[in-house]
């Protein structure tokens, strides 16, 4: 589905992505993890085609910047940005026209109902709350039924109901054979969903693990993440957990001053 081959992106002399290579197969939820400044956003934007880079990125064999490749790709940005003078239904129609979709109305209504936007069809882009904008952004990304959906911090700003719906949708998409590639900081939110995790640090890929491999080793994603990025091992993490739990218990004792 997606092949990233020796991708390097420089900003002046600094490398935001340094010789990054990996492959995503059809179907499955793939998570891109990394600390701030790891190069996750740069990599995502390079895949979508916003940036110039060295190396090669193909989607189903087509160069990622080609029109053919973009038929397979959907994108949900981290910060939703909607047109002020278009309503919710106008945004969906705009996407449908841009992607030349036919007979999309039923699926559009299903998506809007799923994310509780069906009673807000006449609301303008700048009249929606941040969470609703995020949901509309997601609906617009899903409308073309992309084979590869790229999501940048998809859970930010969503209420619990929307998060639940999104997870259900992700599972459904996985079952239908669609590929998701999700960049996130919140490891917990993806804990039960992911199939493959790619861990980045300082522009390089430090880890590329599948769920089966981790489960066979008896590790969690969080453990692997900290192992790779901070060199912490399972015992260190257990100690760290116990220390923070103890500090939490102390601060709850009545009459005790905070330090």
């Amino acid at each position: 589905m997606l092949v990233v081959s020796h991708v390097t992106k420089r900003y002046n002399k600094e490398k935001a992505c340094d010789d990054v290579s990996f492959t995503l197969t059809d179907g499955g939820i793939n998570v891109l993890l990394g600390p701030n400044g790891a190069g996750k956003s740069t990599l995502m934007k390079s895949i979508i085609g916003f940036l110039k880079y060295e190396g090669q990125i193909t989607v189903n064999g087509y160069p990622n910047k080609s029109v053919e490749a973009k038929r397979f790709i959907g994108y949900m940005p981290e910060i939703p940005s909607l047109y002020e003078n278009l309503t919710v239904s106008d945004h969906m129609e705009f996407v449908a026209r841009a992607y030349r979709l036919k007979g999309y109305e039923a699926y559009r209504d299903e998506l809007l109902a799923r994310f509780e936007l069906d009673d807000k069809l006449k609301k303008f882009g700048n009249e929606l709350s941040k969470g609703m904008q995020q949901k509309l952004s997601l609906c617009c990304a899903l409308l073309p039924r992309p084979s590869l959906l790229l999501m940048d911090e998809p859970m930010i700003g969503l209420d619990p109901h929307a998060i639940k719906e999104m997870k259900k949708l992700m599972n459904q998409m996985r079952e239908e054979g669609q590929t998701l590639f999700i960049s996130t900081h919140i490891i917990d939110s993806m804990d039960m969903l992911w199939d493959r995790a790619i861990i980045m640090q300082k522009g390089c890929i430090k880890g590329n693990v599948s769920r089966q491999e981790l489960e066979a080793e008896g590790k969690t994603l969080e453990q692997v993440f900290f192992e790779i990025t901070e060199g912490l091992h399972a015992e260190d993490m257990r100690d760290a957990d116990m220390t923070s739990a103890a500090e939490g218990a102390k601060s709850e004792k009545p009459g005790q001053e905070e330090r």
């Binding site: 979508i48 085609g49 916003f50 029109v67 053919e68 973009k70 038929r71 790709i73 959907g74 994108y75 940005p77 910060i79 939703p80 940005s81 909607l82 047109y83 945004h91 705009f94 996407v95 841009a98 992607y99 030349r100 882009g125 952004s137 617009c140």
Partner: peptide, 15 residues
């Protein structure tokens, strides 16, 4: 181009 154009038009299958 505004951010809205970047988010909607740039990923779309349009030259």
């Amino acid at each position: 181009f505004d951010m809205q154009d970047v988010n909607f038009l740039f990923p779309a299958p349009i030259k």
